[in-house]
Design a protein around this nucleic acid. Sequence first.
RNA 1: GAUCCCGUAGCUCAGUGGUAGAGCAUCUGACUUUUAAUCAGAGGGCCGAUGGUUCGAGACCAUCCGGGAUCACCA
Length: 503
Amino acid sequence: MSEFIRNDQELRRLEELQHLRSAGINPYPAVFEKTHSSATILSTFSDEAPAASYAVTVAGRIMAIRKMGKATFCHIQDAEGKIQIYIKKDDLPEFYELLPMLDIGDIIGIEGYVFRTRTGEVSVHSRTATLLCKSLTPIPVPKEETDEFGNKIVHDAFADKEMRYRRRYVDLIVNPQIRDVFRKRSKIITTMRRFFDDRGWLEVETPILQPLYGGASARPFTTHHNALDIQLSVRIALELYLKRLLVGGLDGVYEISKNFRNEGMDKTHNPEFTMMEIYVAYKDYVWMMEMTEELVSTIAKEVNGSLEVEVGGNLINLAPPYRRATMFDLLKDATGMNLRGLNREELLIAARKLNVEVEATSSQMKVLDEIFSQTVQPSLIQPTFVMDFPVEMSPLAKAHRSEDGLVERFELYVNGDELTNCFTELNDPIDQRERLEQQASIRADGDDEAMQLDEDFLYSIEVGMPPTAGLGIGIDRLVMLLTGQDSIRDVLFFPQMKPENKQ
RNA sequence: GAUCCCGUAGCUCAGUGGUAGAGCAUCUGACUUUUAAUCAGAGGGCCGAUGGUUCGAGACCAUCCGGGAUCACCA
């Protein structure tokens, strides 16, 4: 923060830097050839092998220094873990003179051989040592201790959530276990991509800056393009552009990318979040349920080696098939009432009977949704496909083939949260126009989350989109599920924060 | 927006109206297999800010600033 006001510890490090430079040391050299990671050394060391011949070069950040006079032990941390370094004055007298100039947080490279210390720790006995980066700012140093029962006690942990999010780079150094969450996140996305690619579907990119936003009900961020002198919205969904590609004859397309919604933030919402949407021609939502089951279980197995995952105290089994139930059946089971076809006033009466709190101004669909989220949703712990929503809730989904007033749509709920959303996509241009005009009139009545009328999109649907199934997955929520995290902030490297305001 | 909570050393925190504290980190010295290394010493603070109550405030009160959590909003 206060870049120009340095504390005594920082001032001392600056002095050390000057000392090193005047001693002819480059504190920031360009390259270092390393041959081993800490984890590789620890996993391949054998007491039988002749230690002296096991030469390694490692590099990492100094996390602890224990000086014993003419010998010093350090722990350095690299991407995969920590390893102890043993430095003896006799072996490298010149470097040893510089040792007082080094601090926790500096990055060094060590060439040496692997051995086991008297107390049993596999370590690197250094023959040469090189400073690779002098650190000017002290990092919080947690200390770990193992008590007599083998429990790990961490002292002085860097635990302040706010600071951990703001200074994620420090968090990653000091709390290296969180790296696993992000490794899993990466693997989840890689696995998903491979799953789709193996089936011949095409990964595409569509515009983030859009003259008209659509595909979901949400408020957008807006910006201005100077050259064209127009207002552009930052996308809230991928849907409408991906469907245009279906019209264009691409039979299976998907996109994994950020969406942006100018709305509140909480444990499951961040203003920018990662969405995957996929559209496959000639398929419907029933097919997509099977595909979803296969996708989710494949990813879970690949990432966790297991189909069971514990999150929020619930043990969740992701083995297919998943329970399928219609929205109104679930509502009937939970409330004892048949809510299908009720108008706004009737739904309000039902809500009152059920002690569901709704705002007096809520629309019909909002009341229904509120009843659902308070009575049904919390019970959907094990994976459940909630099927067949009212048409008013789903302006881009195809009318149900046999049920009046409903559309062919499902949402997959796991652990009480919505994980995916899917429709048999609406490709009847007349019906689509009516629905979007309906949205436009709701919008005109003041609901700024209703969809805008996108004539070009309607034109594309008139050109003709094949029968298509579409699926959206909130990647962040999938990552939360598969890593057992209960806040979206813990699966994002840099969650949105209020700007830091120092007075 | 509502409610609740937090702000003391670089870090983690204690301090319940009477001279500002601990551990770690930092500095000096000792120590050639240590591991929260140890031992001996040292420095480091506008106690978030302002006002008030009081003989006396880090503590109590008010306001403000900074931040967090929960709720609401986000179908």
